[in-house]
Design a protein around this nucleic acid. Structure first.
Lengths: 207, 207
DNA sequence: ATTTAATTTAATAGACTTATTAAACCTCCG
DNA sequence: CGGAGGTTTAATAAGTCTATTAAATTAAAT
């Protein structure tokens, strides 16, 4: 039992991640994963025992990546600067992995156990919650100093996340319904990013 | 072949709608539907032939309901009034059917055919598109008159929808992770509704 | 009352799923 | 060389799912 993951194990996880991110958890069978890797289906179970377990490992990996990303910011500067940085950061990641928000959300909604699993992983963990607390501090100081209008941190957080997430979640509709090609989508995402920053920042102007 | 749907057919559709709205399309089997109604599983196929067909009928019913709802507004008054009305309207419907936004979105994302089906149903239909055009007129007039800052109608539309939809989509996380009971959720939704209106309206203030 | 038509059921085909088991295949160490 | 252990495979159990078929039942109509 190596502590190092074998080559094959990584390949399987990689393939599984791509397939799940592309088609969702339920629509991805262990047979699909094996076919993509080019190995036997039983091998997926040999390394991960259950499909659920495989999913959780992928999930945790992605959560860690996002948290680390956010944590890297020292949250310096004005709220405006921070909002801009957060939006930029999310957009740069999600532009590469457009379906991630949807998969993330859908898996958390359809399955109570997984929701609890994430709660234990993030919310119940002091170190991981720190990211939010730091943000809270910055926002409430800005409110107190009159730099921005009064707003609850949770509301501001929800606003930011809503606008970002939904942009990507609705992207397939934008493309198909308005018949946009890849180039137009790129431009749209860029404009949308700027507009989101504007909308948030403007909505925070003192009365 | 009656033009009027039989009693049983309606029961099946009703049961299917409830189950699908609660658990999603994939997680709802025709057997589940039949069990809920108390009839034989084959009867579901007798009336609707395929599960996909059953789903589409439910989908169209809900789309029509939403569009009719929005169309009922004459879009009079300031942009501020209209935004407030739209948000209120959505919240009043979605509070009763909290999972609707998620089911709606997830079904549109996971299945290309369904996305095309909706495109043909809404986007390609002049009468149904009218709702959006009317909104566009109001917004651009308000921009031209300097009543609100310059903004594309699509951006404003996306902002409104994002904030509303994501509130409901993330509700299960809010409840489980922050351990909120039903009463607290009610209050949260009320506050969130007001905050969304505030955020939108403030974000539109002229520079 | 008998025939016709619509509804409902039981049974089942056929295709997938996840997961397990035992056997085969390597690779490396003594 | 020979066995030991980790790796990979084929085979398959046991379950799910949609959809179809033919038979049974009910209702309506002449």
């Amino acid at each position: 039992m190596n502590t190092k993951e074998s080559e094959m194990q990584q390949q399987i996880m990689q393939a599984a991640e791509e397939l799940i991110m592309d088609r969702g958890f339920d629509a991805t069978s262990t047979t699909d994963i094996a076919r993509k890797v080019g190995c036997n289906q039983a091998l997926v179970h040999y390394y991960f025992r259950t499909k659920e377990n495989l999913f959780q490992q992928i999930f945790v990996k992605n959560i860690d990546a996002v948290l680390e990303f956010l944590d890297a910011y020292q949250f310096e500067g004005s709220v405006e600067d921070i909002v801009k940085k957060i939006v930029e950061a999310y957009f740069s990641v999600l532009s590469q992995h457009r379906k991630l928000p949807f998969i993330f959300v859908s898996q958390l909604l359809s399955n109570d156990d997984r929701r609890m699993f994430v709660r234990d992983y993030i919310v119940e963990n002091e170190r991981r919650r720190r990211v939010y607390y730091r943000f809270d501090g910055v926002v409430q100081r800005a409110v107190a100093s009159g730099q921005i209008r009064p707003i609850k941190t949770l509301d501001l957080f929800m606003n930011i996340v809503s606008l970002i997430i939904f942009t990507f979640v609705s992207l397939p509709m934008y493309m198909d319904w308005l018949r946009k090609d890849e180039q137009e989508v790129q431009a749209y995402l860029q404009e949308r990013q700027e507009e989101i920053v504007r909308s948030i920042v403007y909505s925070l102007r003192p009365l």
